[in-house]
Amino acid sequence: MSDTASNAEGFSKKDEVILSPFQLIFVKFKSNRLAMFGLILFLTIVALVSLTNLYTTVTNYDFAHTDASIKNLPPSLQHPFGTDRFGRNNIIRVFQGGWISLQVAFLSTFMAVSIGVLMGAIAGFFGGIIDNVIMRVVEVVSSFPFLALAYIIAAVFRETPAEQRLFLTVFILGILSWTGLARLVRGQIMSLREQEFMVATRALGIKKRNQIVKHLIPNVLAFVVVSGTLTFAGAILSEAFLSFLNLSVTEPIPTWGALLSRAASNSTNMRTVWWQWVFPGFMLFLLIMSVNLIGEGLRDSIDPKATYITRADRKNNKKRKIEEKKIAIQKAATKKMEVAESSKGRV
Protein backbone atom coordinates (compact mmCIF):
# COMPACT_ATOMS: atom_id res chain seq x y z
CA MET A 1 0.00 0.00 0.00
CA SER A 2 2.78 2.29 0.91
CA ASP A 3 4.15 1.74 -2.54
CA THR A 4 0.99 2.93 -4.17
CA ALA A 5 0.70 5.76 -1.74
CA SER A 6 4.16 6.97 -2.53
CA ASN A 7 3.31 6.63 -6.14
CA ALA A 8 0.15 8.64 -5.80
CA GLU A 9 -0.45 11.48 -8.12
CA GLY A 10 -2.77 13.12 -5.63
CA PHE A 11 -6.19 11.87 -4.49
CA SER A 12 -8.91 11.37 -7.03
CA LYS A 13 -12.50 10.04 -6.88
CA LYS A 14 -11.18 6.61 -7.61
CA ASP A 15 -9.31 6.39 -4.35
CA GLU A 16 -12.31 7.22 -2.26
CA VAL A 17 -13.93 3.81 -2.76
CA ILE A 18 -14.50 2.27 0.65
CA LEU A 19 -14.08 -1.50 0.65
CA SER A 20 -16.24 -3.59 2.98
CA PRO A 21 -14.25 -6.13 5.06
CA PHE A 22 -15.28 -8.96 2.75
CA GLN A 23 -14.36 -7.02 -0.35
CA LEU A 24 -11.04 -6.27 1.25
CA ILE A 25 -10.49 -9.94 2.01
CA PHE A 26 -11.43 -10.74 -1.56
CA VAL A 27 -9.02 -8.19 -2.95
CA LYS A 28 -6.25 -9.35 -0.68
CA PHE A 29 -6.88 -13.00 -1.50
CA LYS A 30 -6.92 -12.29 -5.20
CA SER A 31 -3.59 -10.59 -4.91
CA ASN A 32 -1.96 -13.57 -3.17
CA ARG A 33 -0.48 -15.58 -5.99
CA LEU A 34 0.18 -18.74 -3.96
CA ALA A 35 -3.36 -18.75 -2.63
CA MET A 36 -4.84 -18.18 -6.06
CA PHE A 37 -2.78 -21.05 -7.36
CA GLY A 38 -4.21 -23.17 -4.56
CA LEU A 39 -7.73 -22.14 -5.43
CA ILE A 40 -7.32 -22.90 -9.12
CA LEU A 41 -5.73 -26.25 -8.30
CA PHE A 42 -8.55 -27.06 -5.92
CA LEU A 43 -11.23 -26.14 -8.43
CA THR A 44 -9.49 -28.17 -11.12
CA ILE A 45 -9.40 -31.24 -8.90
CA VAL A 46 -13.03 -30.80 -7.89
CA ALA A 47 -14.03 -30.40 -11.53
CA LEU A 48 -12.06 -33.44 -12.62
CA VAL A 49 -13.46 -35.57 -9.84
CA SER A 50 -17.01 -34.38 -10.38
CA LEU A 51 -16.80 -35.09 -14.09
CA THR A 52 -15.56 -38.60 -13.34
CA ASN A 53 -18.41 -39.11 -10.97
CA LEU A 54 -20.86 -37.86 -13.57
CA TYR A 55 -19.37 -40.25 -16.09
CA THR A 56 -19.51 -43.27 -13.76
CA THR A 57 -23.07 -42.44 -12.72
CA VAL A 58 -24.31 -42.00 -16.26
CA THR A 59 -22.58 -45.10 -17.58
CA ASN A 60 -23.44 -47.07 -14.42
CA TYR A 61 -19.78 -48.02 -14.13
CA ASP A 62 -19.25 -51.30 -12.27
CA PHE A 63 -16.49 -50.79 -9.71
CA ALA A 64 -16.74 -54.41 -8.65
CA HIS A 65 -15.86 -55.71 -12.09
CA THR A 66 -12.59 -57.55 -11.78
CA ASP A 67 -10.46 -59.18 -14.43
CA ALA A 68 -7.54 -61.27 -13.25
CA SER A 69 -5.99 -61.37 -16.72
CA ILE A 70 -5.09 -57.68 -16.60
CA LYS A 71 -4.16 -57.30 -12.95
CA ASN A 72 -1.18 -55.19 -11.84
CA LEU A 73 -0.49 -53.74 -15.28
CA PRO A 74 1.81 -50.71 -15.40
CA PRO A 75 0.52 -47.43 -16.82
CA SER A 76 -0.20 -47.55 -20.55
CA LEU A 77 -2.33 -45.68 -23.06
CA GLN A 78 -5.28 -47.90 -22.30
CA HIS A 79 -4.83 -47.65 -18.52
CA PRO A 80 -3.06 -44.33 -17.91
CA PHE A 81 -2.72 -45.02 -14.18
CA GLY A 82 -2.20 -48.77 -14.60
CA THR A 83 -4.51 -51.41 -13.16
CA ASP A 84 -4.99 -52.55 -9.57
CA ARG A 85 -4.47 -55.99 -8.07
CA PHE A 86 -7.93 -57.06 -9.15
CA GLY A 87 -7.43 -55.88 -12.72
CA ARG A 88 -9.47 -52.70 -12.51
CA ASN A 89 -8.68 -49.47 -14.32
CA ASN A 90 -6.88 -47.33 -11.79
CA ILE A 91 -7.57 -43.94 -13.32
CA ILE A 92 -11.29 -44.25 -12.81
CA ARG A 93 -10.77 -45.48 -9.28
CA VAL A 94 -8.42 -42.65 -8.39
CA PHE A 95 -10.75 -39.94 -9.67
CA GLN A 96 -13.83 -41.58 -8.23
CA GLY A 97 -11.93 -42.06 -4.98
CA GLY A 98 -11.53 -38.29 -4.88
CA TRP A 99 -15.28 -37.94 -5.09
CA ILE A 100 -15.79 -40.00 -1.95
CA SER A 101 -12.83 -38.40 -0.16
CA LEU A 102 -14.12 -34.93 -0.98
CA GLN A 103 -17.58 -35.87 0.19
CA VAL A 104 -16.23 -37.24 3.45
CA ALA A 105 -14.10 -34.16 3.93
CA PHE A 106 -16.83 -31.66 3.05
CA LEU A 107 -19.50 -33.27 5.15
CA SER A 108 -17.33 -33.94 8.18
CA THR A 109 -15.85 -30.45 8.04
CA PHE A 110 -19.33 -29.02 7.82
CA MET A 111 -20.35 -31.08 10.82
CA ALA A 112 -17.26 -30.22 12.85
CA VAL A 113 -17.51 -26.55 12.01
CA SER A 114 -21.20 -26.31 12.84
CA ILE A 115 -20.82 -28.08 16.17
CA GLY A 116 -17.63 -26.20 16.98
CA VAL A 117 -19.00 -22.75 16.15
CA LEU A 118 -22.27 -23.37 17.93
CA MET A 119 -20.70 -24.78 21.06
CA GLY A 120 -17.95 -22.18 21.12
CA ALA A 121 -20.41 -19.34 20.56
CA ILE A 122 -22.77 -20.54 23.27
CA ALA A 123 -19.95 -21.09 25.72
CA GLY A 124 -18.33 -17.75 24.97
CA PHE A 125 -21.51 -15.75 24.93
CA PHE A 126 -23.26 -17.08 28.02
CA GLY A 127 -20.22 -17.89 30.11
CA GLY A 128 -20.79 -19.16 33.64
CA ILE A 129 -22.14 -22.67 34.13
CA ILE A 130 -22.96 -23.22 30.46
CA ASP A 131 -19.41 -22.31 29.52
CA ASN A 132 -18.07 -24.56 32.23
CA VAL A 133 -20.13 -27.54 31.11
CA ILE A 134 -19.28 -27.10 27.44
CA MET A 135 -15.61 -26.65 28.16
CA ARG A 136 -15.59 -29.82 30.26
CA VAL A 137 -17.16 -31.66 27.33
CA VAL A 138 -14.47 -30.23 25.08
CA GLU A 139 -11.83 -31.28 27.54
CA VAL A 140 -13.19 -34.80 27.76
CA VAL A 141 -13.57 -35.28 23.99
CA SER A 142 -10.11 -33.92 23.29
CA SER A 143 -8.47 -35.89 26.06
CA PHE A 144 -8.74 -39.12 24.09
CA PRO A 145 -6.57 -39.98 21.16
CA PHE A 146 -8.55 -39.57 17.97
CA LEU A 147 -8.03 -43.10 16.68
CA ALA A 148 -8.89 -44.63 20.05
CA LEU A 149 -12.32 -43.05 20.06
CA ALA A 150 -12.81 -43.62 16.35
CA TYR A 151 -12.18 -47.32 16.90
CA ILE A 152 -14.77 -47.56 19.63
CA ILE A 153 -17.41 -45.59 17.76
CA ALA A 154 -16.85 -47.76 14.71
CA ALA A 155 -17.25 -50.85 16.90
CA VAL A 156 -20.41 -49.60 18.55
CA PHE A 157 -22.02 -48.90 15.18
CA ARG A 158 -20.64 -52.02 13.57
CA GLU A 159 -23.94 -53.08 12.04
CA THR A 160 -24.13 -50.15 9.67
CA PRO A 161 -24.69 -51.51 6.16
CA ALA A 162 -21.92 -50.93 3.64
CA GLU A 163 -23.74 -48.09 1.85
CA GLN A 164 -24.00 -46.13 5.07
CA ARG A 165 -20.43 -46.66 6.19
CA LEU A 166 -19.60 -43.42 4.42
CA PHE A 167 -21.87 -41.49 6.73
CA LEU A 168 -20.54 -43.33 9.74
CA THR A 169 -17.06 -42.22 8.73
CA VAL A 170 -18.30 -38.65 8.34
CA PHE A 171 -19.95 -38.87 11.73
CA ILE A 172 -16.82 -40.18 13.44
CA LEU A 173 -14.66 -37.49 11.88
CA GLY A 174 -17.17 -34.73 12.59
CA ILE A 175 -17.95 -35.64 16.14
CA LEU A 176 -14.28 -35.84 17.10
CA SER A 177 -12.79 -32.81 15.42
CA TRP A 178 -14.90 -29.86 16.57
CA THR A 179 -13.20 -29.22 19.90
CA GLY A 180 -10.31 -27.08 18.70
CA LEU A 181 -12.62 -24.78 16.79
CA ALA A 182 -14.99 -24.51 19.75
CA ARG A 183 -12.13 -23.29 21.92
CA LEU A 184 -11.05 -20.80 19.30
CA VAL A 185 -14.54 -19.39 18.75
CA ARG A 186 -15.17 -19.21 22.48
CA GLY A 187 -12.00 -17.20 23.02
CA GLN A 188 -12.83 -14.84 20.16
CA ILE A 189 -16.37 -14.28 21.29
CA MET A 190 -15.33 -13.67 24.86
CA SER A 191 -13.07 -10.85 23.75
CA LEU A 192 -15.60 -9.50 21.23
CA ARG A 193 -18.35 -9.47 23.83
CA GLU A 194 -16.62 -6.76 25.75
CA GLN A 195 -16.14 -4.52 22.74
CA GLU A 196 -18.22 -1.40 22.19
CA PHE A 197 -20.43 -2.66 19.42
CA MET A 198 -21.61 -5.58 21.52
CA VAL A 199 -22.27 -3.35 24.47
CA ALA A 200 -24.37 -1.32 22.09
CA THR A 201 -26.42 -4.34 20.99
CA ARG A 202 -27.15 -5.11 24.59
CA ALA A 203 -28.08 -1.54 25.32
CA LEU A 204 -30.42 -1.57 22.34
CA GLY A 205 -32.10 -4.69 23.69
CA ILE A 206 -31.44 -6.88 20.68
CA LYS A 207 -32.45 -10.51 21.18
CA LYS A 208 -29.69 -12.82 22.40
CA ARG A 209 -30.13 -15.10 19.42
CA ASN A 210 -29.67 -12.18 17.08
CA GLN A 211 -26.74 -10.92 19.09
CA ILE A 212 -25.01 -14.23 18.47
CA VAL A 213 -26.14 -14.93 14.93
CA LYS A 214 -26.06 -11.45 13.44
CA HIS A 215 -23.33 -9.73 15.36
CA LEU A 216 -20.91 -12.21 16.87
CA ILE A 217 -20.70 -15.05 14.38
CA PRO A 218 -19.96 -12.83 11.35
CA ASN A 219 -17.05 -11.42 13.29
CA VAL A 220 -15.52 -14.82 13.97
CA LEU A 221 -16.39 -16.24 10.58
CA ALA A 222 -12.97 -15.41 9.24
CA PHE A 223 -11.24 -17.62 11.77
CA VAL A 224 -13.80 -20.31 11.19
CA VAL A 225 -13.07 -20.39 7.49
CA VAL A 226 -9.35 -20.70 8.09
CA SER A 227 -9.79 -23.37 10.71
CA GLY A 228 -12.26 -25.10 8.41
CA THR A 229 -9.70 -25.49 5.64
CA LEU A 230 -7.35 -27.16 8.09
CA THR A 231 -10.11 -29.45 9.35
CA PHE A 232 -10.86 -30.27 5.74
CA ALA A 233 -7.31 -31.36 5.04
CA GLY A 234 -7.21 -33.24 8.33
CA ALA A 235 -10.42 -35.10 7.49
CA ILE A 236 -9.00 -36.50 4.27
CA LEU A 237 -5.96 -37.77 6.13
CA SER A 238 -7.99 -39.18 8.98
CA GLU A 239 -10.12 -41.06 6.49
CA ALA A 240 -6.91 -42.66 5.23
CA PHE A 241 -6.09 -43.81 8.75
CA LEU A 242 -9.56 -45.23 9.24
CA SER A 243 -9.21 -47.04 5.92
CA PHE A 244 -5.89 -48.47 6.95
CA LEU A 245 -7.53 -49.91 10.03
CA ASN A 246 -10.50 -51.19 8.00
CA LEU A 247 -12.86 -48.79 9.74
CA SER A 248 -13.93 -46.78 6.72
CA VAL A 249 -15.84 -47.71 3.58
CA THR A 250 -15.42 -51.16 2.06
CA GLU A 251 -14.80 -52.45 -1.43
CA PRO A 252 -15.77 -51.76 -4.14
CA ILE A 253 -16.06 -48.09 -3.08
CA PRO A 254 -12.72 -46.37 -3.64
CA THR A 255 -11.32 -43.51 -1.56
CA TRP A 256 -7.82 -42.08 -1.73
CA GLY A 257 -7.25 -43.27 1.79
CA ALA A 258 -8.39 -46.77 0.92
CA LEU A 259 -6.30 -46.86 -2.27
CA LEU A 260 -3.23 -45.76 -0.33
CA SER A 261 -3.73 -48.09 2.57
CA ARG A 262 -4.31 -51.11 0.32
CA ALA A 263 -1.09 -50.28 -1.49
CA ALA A 264 0.70 -49.95 1.85
CA SER A 265 -0.33 -53.41 3.00
CA ASN A 266 2.83 -54.87 1.49
CA SER A 267 6.06 -52.91 1.28
CA THR A 268 7.41 -54.98 -1.61
CA ASN A 269 4.39 -54.05 -3.69
CA MET A 270 5.20 -50.41 -3.14
CA ARG A 271 8.23 -50.87 -5.36
CA THR A 272 6.92 -53.37 -7.86
CA VAL A 273 3.49 -51.86 -8.49
CA TRP A 274 4.29 -48.27 -7.64
CA TRP A 275 1.47 -46.85 -9.77
CA GLN A 276 -1.04 -48.16 -7.28
CA TRP A 277 0.09 -45.64 -4.68
CA VAL A 278 1.84 -42.88 -6.62
CA PHE A 279 -1.31 -41.62 -8.34
CA PRO A 280 -3.70 -41.53 -5.38
CA GLY A 281 -0.82 -40.26 -3.25
CA PHE A 282 -0.07 -37.45 -5.67
CA MET A 283 -3.72 -36.48 -5.95
CA LEU A 284 -4.05 -36.48 -2.19
CA PHE A 285 -0.96 -34.32 -1.96
CA LEU A 286 -2.26 -31.84 -4.54
CA LEU A 287 -5.62 -31.58 -2.87
CA ILE A 288 -4.25 -31.11 0.62
CA MET A 289 -1.71 -28.64 -0.67
CA SER A 290 -4.37 -26.63 -2.49
CA VAL A 291 -6.62 -26.55 0.56
CA ASN A 292 -3.75 -25.51 2.78
CA LEU A 293 -2.66 -22.79 0.39
CA ILE A 294 -6.19 -21.47 0.32
CA GLY A 295 -6.27 -21.56 4.10
CA GLU A 296 -2.96 -19.71 4.40
CA GLY A 297 -4.13 -17.18 1.87
CA LEU A 298 -7.38 -16.64 3.72
CA ARG A 299 -5.55 -16.21 6.98
CA ASP A 300 -3.37 -13.51 5.48
CA SER A 301 -6.33 -11.83 3.80
CA ILE A 302 -8.33 -11.74 7.00
CA ASP A 303 -5.48 -10.28 9.00
CA PRO A 304 -6.16 -6.51 8.80
CA LYS A 305 -2.54 -5.71 9.55
CA ALA A 306 -1.08 -7.83 6.82
CA THR A 307 0.32 -6.00 3.84
CA TYR A 308 -0.45 -7.09 0.36
CA ILE A 309 0.38 -6.22 -3.17
CA THR A 310 -2.41 -6.37 -5.71
CA ARG A 311 -1.97 -7.41 -9.26
CA ALA A 312 -2.40 -3.84 -10.36
CA ASP A 313 0.29 -2.82 -7.90
CA ARG A 314 2.52 -5.52 -9.21
CA LYS A 315 1.93 -4.27 -12.74
CA ASN A 316 2.54 -0.74 -11.61
CA ASN A 317 5.65 -1.80 -9.81
CA LYS A 318 6.84 -3.56 -12.88
CA LYS A 319 5.99 -0.61 -15.04
CA ARG A 320 7.66 1.68 -12.57
CA LYS A 321 10.73 -0.50 -12.47
CA ILE A 322 10.82 -0.61 -16.22
CA GLU A 323 10.35 3.13 -16.36
CA GLU A 324 12.99 3.60 -13.72
CA LYS A 325 15.23 1.44 -15.78
CA LYS A 326 14.37 3.42 -18.87
CA ILE A 327 15.04 6.61 -17.00
CA ALA A 328 18.26 5.16 -15.71
CA ILE A 329 19.25 4.12 -19.19
CA GLN A 330 18.24 7.48 -20.50
CA LYS A 331 20.16 9.16 -17.72
CA ALA A 332 23.13 6.98 -18.43
CA ALA A 333 22.76 7.72 -22.08
CA THR A 334 22.47 11.41 -21.52
CA LYS A 335 25.42 11.22 -19.16
CA LYS A 336 27.35 9.41 -21.83
CA MET A 337 26.33 12.01 -24.28
CA GLU A 338 27.22 14.69 -21.83
CA VAL A 339 30.53 13.02 -21.23
CA ALA A 340 30.96 12.61 -24.92
CA GLU A 341 29.93 16.13 -25.52
CA SER A 342 32.10 17.44 -22.77
CA SER A 343 34.98 15.39 -24.04
CA LYS A 344 34.07 16.65 -27.47
CA GLY A 345 34.13 20.06 -26.05
CA ARG A 346 37.55 19.41 -24.72
CA VAL A 347 38.63 18.16 -27.97
Binding site: L237, L260, A264, G281, F285, I288, N292
Partner: peptide
Protein backbone atom coordinates in the same frame (compact mmCIF):
# COMPACT_ATOMS: atom_id res chain seq x y z
CA UNK B 1 8.92 -23.91 4.15
CA UNK B 2 5.19 -23.59 3.51
CA UNK B 3 5.29 -26.02 0.62
CA UNK B 4 7.57 -28.45 2.45
CA UNK B 5 5.38 -28.48 5.53
CA UNK B 6 2.40 -29.16 3.35
CA UNK B 7 4.24 -32.06 1.76
CA UNK B 8 4.83 -33.26 5.30
CA UNK B 9 1.15 -33.39 6.18
CA UNK B 10 -0.09 -34.51 2.80
CA UNK B 11 0.95 -38.08 3.34
CA UNK B 12 -0.57 -40.21 6.09
CA UNK B 13 2.11 -41.19 8.58
CA UNK B 14 1.80 -44.91 7.82
CA UNK B 15 2.68 -44.09 4.29
CA UNK B 16 5.54 -41.87 5.30
CA UNK B 17 6.81 -44.75 7.42
CA UNK B 18 6.81 -47.11 4.46
CA UNK B 19 8.54 -44.59 2.23
Amino acid sequence: VTVLTIVGISLPSFFLALI
